[in-house]
Design a protein around this nucleic acid. Sequence first.
DNA 1: CGGATTCTGTACTGATCGATACAGAATAGC
DNA 2: GCTATTCTGTATCGATCAGTACAGAATCCG
Lengths: 189, 189
Amino acid sequence: MARQRAYEEHTVVAAAEAVFWARGFQWTAVRDLEEATGLARSSLYLAFGTKRGLFDAALTYYIDSFIRSMLDPLEAPQAGVRDAAAFFRTLARLFGDPQSQRGCLMINSIGELAGRDPTFTGPAAQFVDRYRAAFSNALRGTMPSRVVKRRAELLAAATLGAWLEVRADPVAASTTCRAVATEISSWSR
Amino acid sequence: MARQRAYEEHTVVAAAEAVFWARGFQWTAVRDLEEATGLARSSLYLAFGTKRGLFDAALTYYIDSFIRSMLDPLEAPQAGVRDAAAFFRTLARLFGDPQSQRGCLMINSIGELAGRDPTFTGPAAQFVDRYRAAFSNALRGTMPSRVVKRRAELLAAATLGAWLEVRADPVAASTTCRAVATEISSWSR
DNA sequence: CGGATTCTGTACTGATCGATACAGAATAGC
DNA sequence: GCTATTCTGTATCGATCAGTACAGAATCCG
C-alpha cells in the first residue's frame, strides 16, 4: 500500500467531541476542528467526509463512552430503586465540576437539531427512550407496573431537564438532582 | 416630524419570534427575518440595532405572552396541586399540535446560548427559577415545605425535559406529560 | 408648496463559512 | 531505487454571513 496516517482516529474523534460539546455543532467552525485535532482540513475531510460526518462520529463516541458509563448501573439486570437515586446523586456531584456547564452533548444537540434535521430526529427520540427504559428497568418490581411506567417517564424528563438546567445554573441544577434523588428514595419507603 | 413607519413594531416582533422559534437564533439568517417581517434590512437594523437585538425583543415578547399565559394559573395566589397537574395535561394536549415540535423558544435558546453567551445565562437561570417558584406556589400548604421544595424542583426539571423531548418525539412527550400529571394527582390522595 | 426630518430599498462591505483542487511528502511493493 | 498509492499542507473556491452606506421616497411643519 502507501503512506500511513499520522494520527489515530479515536484521538481525533475525542478532540472533536470536546469542541462540539463545548460549542455546539453550528457554533463550531471547521477551523476550530483543525486546531483541536491538529489535523489539516484535507485530512479531516478525507477521513470524515463532511463537518457533519465528524460530528456524527463524535456523537457516537460520546454515546458509547460517557452515556454508556452513566447508564450502565441503571441498565443492569439487578438495578433497583437505589440505583435510580444514585444516578441523580452522581449527576449532582458531577455538576460541581465547572466543566459540566457544557451540559450533555446529546441533549445539547437535541436542542440544536431535533425536529429540524430529519436524520437526527430519530436517533434523538431513541436516546430519550433509552432513558425511559433504563429507569423502568431500575424501578420494576417494587411497585405496580403502571406506577413504574409513569415514574420512569417522570425521571427521564427530569434527567433531560437537569442537563439543560446545568447549562444555565450548575449550582441550581445540582440542587435539583439532589432533590430528585430524595424524592426517589421516598418511593422505597 | 417626518415620514412615519409603515409597520407596527409588535407585528414585526411577532413575525421574528415565529422564525427564531422554528429555526433557532444561529440558524436564522437576517434574510429570513426580512422575508418573515416584510421589512427591509435597513428598517430592521434601524429599529433593533442587531440581529441579536431583534432576537431579544422576540424573546421578551415570547415570555410576556406565551410563557405568561402558561404560568398564570400556577402563579396565582389560589393555585393548588390540581393546577400543577392541569399544567401538564395542558402541555400533553398542546403537544398534539404538530406546531409544538418547535418546542419552547426560551428552552431552545437555553440549549443554544446558555453558558456560552454571558448576557443570556443570567436570564436563563431566572427563567428556570420562575418555574420552580411557580410549582412551589402551587404545591404549598398540602405537604411539608421540604417536600414542596423538592417536588417543585422535580416538576421544573420535568417541564424543561418535556419541552426538549417534544422536539424529538411529540407523541412520546405528550405521554410523558400525562404521566407526570397522574403522578402529581397521586400526591393529593 | 418648501424645507427639514425620518424611513426604506438597493447595493455593497469585509469576514467567514464549508468544502475542494492540487501539488508534494511519505510509504508500500517490486 | 523506482513506481504506485495514500496522506497532508496550502491556497482557494463560491456562497453566505451580519452589518452598513447612501440615495431617494414619504411625511410632517410651516
